[in-house]
């Protein structure tokens, strides 16, 4: 195979794997923003907490990496429900700016809290050997970790789409996102639907944070470092809770970031910012947003 083809396949593989990871982490934010118009900037705090759950279980309880992932999901989902009941619920009718301030406050508290509990240094995990090797199939070699990201991302994406399109609960979510008042009118308990969606979305963020430790790193400033990425996925995808849009945006972001670094590394972080600006100016409501 000519090197240029190998390079393209490599970029596609890495870019899509990275994009899938971003999608898993931010899809919850997209749906909850669409449904409740609630700007939860602290979404990254959930992802960070998921990462710390995994490192703690691995280091202090000797769990294997893969076994910790479901625990991160469940634990973060549970934590997020408590936060939703205690704090977020009162803020749904509040001004956007107050929502921003509240969630920035939570980000700051989670950063200091994580530094206090786990220390300020970046966390390391020793992935099992089968996740740190490169496999070669024919002329193409890929990392098993990238393959794991790709596999988990694909399964979760399919599950999310199936759940939304084919289940009764999914229909309720879509109804609530489309028009909250009408949904209430036809007897859907929107609050309950929302709580569950919020929990699943946050759990997915936690799972993404755990899954991504190897690619994204983990330290207390995680919620701030990746805030820009979440915002980009949500807004490029469309702020009306479009899951398709979030997926497209995450893949676009993953691919343009990877391709930019691979082919024109001089440009540094410019690529994703410029892509974001262009998309926003071209379609201010996002790729799949409604006018």
């Amino acid at each position: 195979m000519p090197p240029i083809v190998i390079g393209i396949v490599q970029v596609l593989f890495d870019g899509v794997a990275f994009g899938m990871l971003l999608f898993v982490m931010s899809v919850g934010l997209s749906i909850t923003l669409g449904m409740m118009r609630f700007a939860n900037l602290a979404h990254g705090s959930f992802a960070m907490l998921g990462g710390y759950t995994t490192t703690t279980l691995m280091r202090h309880a000797g769990w294997s990496f893969l076994a910790t992932l479901p625990v991160s999901f469940v634990l973060i989902a549970a934590v997020s429900v408590v936060l939703e009941r205690v704090l977020y619920r009162r803020m749904y009718q509040a001004k956007e700016l107050d929502q921003v301030l509240l969630t920035v406050g939570i980000i700051y508290m989670s950063i200091a809290g994580a530094a206090y509990v786990w220390g300020p240094e970046p966390q390391a995990i020793s992935l099992p050997d089968y996740l740190t090797v490169y496999r070669t199939v024919g002329w193409f070699s890929f990392s098993t970790y990238g393959a794991l990201l790709l596999a988990v991302g694909t399964v979760l994406t399919l599950a999310i789409f199936f759940g939304l399109e084919r289940t009764r609960f999914g229909a309720m979510i879509r109804a609530a996102v489309d028009d909250r008042r009408v949904a209430l009118g036809v007897g859907i308990d929107v609050n309950r639907v929302f709580t569950i969606t919020f929990a699943v979305g946050s759990g997915l963020a936690g799972l993404g944070g755990a899954l991504g430790i190897n690619a994204l790193g983990l330290d207390p400033s995680f919620p701030i470092e990746y805030l820009v990425f979440f915002l980009i996925v949500v807004s490029i995808g469309g702020t009306a809770g479009s899951v398709k849009g979030a997926l497209a945006a995450a893949l676009l972001l993953g691919l343009s970031d990877t391709a930019g670094k691979y082919y024109i590394p001089q440009t540094g972080a410019f690529i994703i910012y410029v892509v974001m600006l262009l998309v926003m100016l071209w379609r201010p409501n996002g790729l799949f947003g409604r006018a």
């Binding site: 390079g7 490599q10 970029v11 890495d14 990275f18 990392s143 990238g146 690619a215 994204l216 790193g217 470092e225 990746y226 990425f229 970031d257 990877t258 391709a259 930019g260 670094k261 691979y262 590394p265 001089q266 540094g268 972080a269």
Partner: peptide, 16 residues
């Protein structure tokens, strides 16, 4: 290669 300080993914640089 110059690596942005706000960089989440090193794979492409290492590939180069």
């Amino acid at each position: 290669v110059r690596i942005p300080v706000s960089n989440p993914d090193f794979t492409p640089f290492v590939q180069r």
